[in-house]
């Protein structure tokens, strides 16, 4: 074992200059100033996003807030098979099935609620759906509210989530 002169980074004896901290302060300042000048000269490369005026774009595969697909007449495509709620690991999809007035459809969701606070955005629900009735392609990731109830979204809400992120 050879004894090194350098002080242990987490203790031991510090040299005089180390104890003044000044060399490190100036070195840090130097890095900051280097970035300021670089960024001022190359504004287009700056990584900062001017949120909320500006949004970061995600890949089309990004799983955002769910939406329910509509049939041509605007009614839900969902047939209340409960595959999604069975697959959901967070147990946050609550469906009540009912008899559809149109005998050709038979079964439909009377209510379809998702508790977004419990959802882990895993995407298992859209993967399980045999009817392509639930999708997570809205790209919406701003999910905020001031009460718990606001996160408990209903069938009507989910039907009106468009994939371009607008709520109608």
């Amino acid at each position: 074992m050879t004894a090194t002169k350098k002080a242990h980074p987490y203790g031991g004896k510090m040299t005089f200059w180390e104890r003044t901290y000044l060399p490190e302060v100036f070195r840090g300042m130097g890095i900051t100033i280097k970035h300021v000048i670089h960024n001022l000269l190359h504004t287009s490369e700056m990584p900062t996003v001017q949120y909320p005026e500006e949004h970061r774009s995600y890949s089309p595969r990004f799983r955002g807030r769910h939406r329910l697909m509509q049939r041509d007449d605007g009614s839900p495509r969902c047939v209340a098979c409960m595959m999604c709620s069975t697959a959901c690991p967070a147990d946050c999809i609550h469906i009540v099935a009912g008899e559809h007035p149109d005998p050709a459809i038979e079964k439909f969701p009377e209510t379809f609620d998702i508790d977004l606070l419990r959802c882990v955005y895993c995407g298992l629900c859209e993967e399980a759906c045999p009817c392509d009735a639930i999708r997570m392609d809205t790209g919406i990731y701003e999910i905020a509210g001031t009460t718990r109830e606001e996160f408990f979204v209903s069938k009507e809400f989910l039907l009106n989530n468009k994939s371009d992120g607008t709520e109608v």
Partner: peptide, 8 residues
């Protein structure tokens, strides 16, 4: 039509 069939 298993999705809407109670026997499923």
């Amino acid at each position: 039509d298993c999705p809407i069939c109670d026997q499923a």
